[in-house]
């Protein structure tokens, strides 16, 4: 495994948003986390990426070629440094920065330049900057938005903004990419293109993908395994076929009593 959450719980006041969830992700997989609105999926992502410190439970990572360590309660930037990158459900780009700068920020945690370097612009700092610009541009090309390179992020069309979020996440050089509703608001054609992109990220970039998604056709097409959450709890887990026929899942989506 490369990510393991054990009995992870998150409380807000008296409300238990995530309730003793166990999830395991293996290298090279595409795994989906689904469930009705308010099931606690995004909260789970937030716990894993350090936005909220979990109330209970543990999160461990085991990067490819590394050793297993706990990342429970680490700050988001430390977790990003360790190789977990994410996108946000409601796009959170740096709206006034250019597309290239957005990606360059993603690369930030791999850089070394300090204040002195910034002021003196010594050889090492200059080379580092040039490398960042080069790499960021390469990433934009991979994601297919290099034509927007010097535009402000807020001026991009919606689909390109979603792609830029992915580009920025990849720039942190992660081994695991967490995508929070990457297809939200996209039209069928854009969703198809997203399919290709996600597959390419896994097959070419060798990333493991963990995604939250409401578009069931995308989930069924892409994921090898699916976890289902409802009311904060994990209610099912298995292959797409298994999950599709699971009575608990059907109940969660359609409600206890259809006539009510």
């Amino acid at each position: 495994m490369i990510l393991k959450a054990t009995q992870l719980s998150m409380d807000f006041g008296g409300l238990r948003a995530v309730d003793r969830v166990d999830i395991e992700i293996h290298e090279g997989e595409i795994v989906a986390l689904i469930g009705p609105n308010g099931a606690g999926k995004t909260t789970f992502f937030n716990c894993v990426t350090g936005v909220y410190p979990p109330t209970e439970g543990q999160i461990h990572i085991n990067p490819p070629g590394g050793t297993e360590v706990s990342i429970t309660g680490l700050k988001p930037n430390r977790i990003a440094e360790r190789g977990l990158a994410r996108t946000f459900q409601n796009i959170r780009l740096f709206p006034n920065m250019t597309v290239l700068e957005n990606v360059m920020v993603g690369r930030d945690c791999r850089l070394k330049a300090g204040i002195l370097g910034a002021i003196l612009r010594d050889r090492r700092t200059r080379e580092e900057e040039e490398q960042v610009i080069h790499d960021s541009h390469e990433i934009l090309k991979k994601i297919g938005i290099e034509q927007h390179v010097n535009e402000q992020a807020k001026n991009l069309p919606y689909g390109a903004q979603r792609r830029l979020e992915i580009a920025r996440a990849i720039a942190t050089e992660p081994f695991l990419l967490l995508l929070d509703e990457p297809a939200a608001g996209m039209n069928p054609q854009e969703t198809r293109q997203l399919d290709d992109l996600i597959l390419r990220l896994r097959d070419v970039e060798k990333l493991t993908i963990f995604l939250i998604e409401h578009d069931m056709s995308l989930v069924m097409r892409l994921s090898e395994r699916i976890y289902v959450m409802d009311y904060g709890e994990l209610i099912a887990h298995g292959s797409p076929a298994e999950v599709k026929s699971n009575p608990l899942v059907i109940k969660a989506y359609l409600g206890e009593d259809v006539s009510a």
Partner: peptide, 8 residues
């Protein structure tokens, strides 16, 4: 006041 979690 109630502690408010920041929406993400």
């Amino acid at each position: 006041g109630k502690p408010a979690a920041q929406k993400v």
